[in-house]
């Protein structure tokens, strides 16, 4: 019962975050919304595991929590440098690109 309530609440929150991801207006709004969406996805997977009585779902939630973080960092890096390999604002590499 409580898990059904939690599922509905998380889905509502995810829908609101998705609206912000659609509205923008800047790309950082979208990244922020998608990151928040990802955190709620972790919660959704966990609560679905309890709802279905399958605690193995928690392993997936654990992985998703980590992938969500790596994905956010990767997107930010890609937006900023259009290149995954760069670490800093290095003028030498700027010219050779």
């Amino acid at each position: 019962m409580i898990f059904a309530v939690a599922t509905i609440a998380v889905v509502i929150a995810m829908a609101l975050a998705l609206v912000r991801a659609f509205l923008g207006p800047t790309v950082y709004d979208r990244v922020l919304a998608v990151n928040s969406f990802g955190t709620k996805t972790v919660l959704l997977i966990a609560v679905l595991g309890f709802l279905a009585g399958r605690p193995e779902f928690l392993d997936i939630a654990l992985l998703y929590a980590l992938i969500n973080f790596v994905g956010t960092i990767a997107i930010l890096k890609f937006i900023r440098y259009a290149d995954m390999g760069r670490a800093t604002d290095d003028p030498v590499r700027e010219e050779t690109r």
Binding site: A13, L16, D29
Partner: peptide, 30 residues
């Protein structure tokens, strides 16, 4: 605990929609 968590999740998402600019949305979202 779960109900308080649900409440904060929805408030956070609501703040993501209501707050006016990116910097203030960061507070609400993450």
């Amino acid at each position: 605990f779960i109900l308080i968590g649900c409440f904060f999740a929805i408030v956070g998402a609501l703040g993501l929609l209501r707050l006016p600019d990116v910097y203030t949305r960061v507070h609400s979202a993450g």
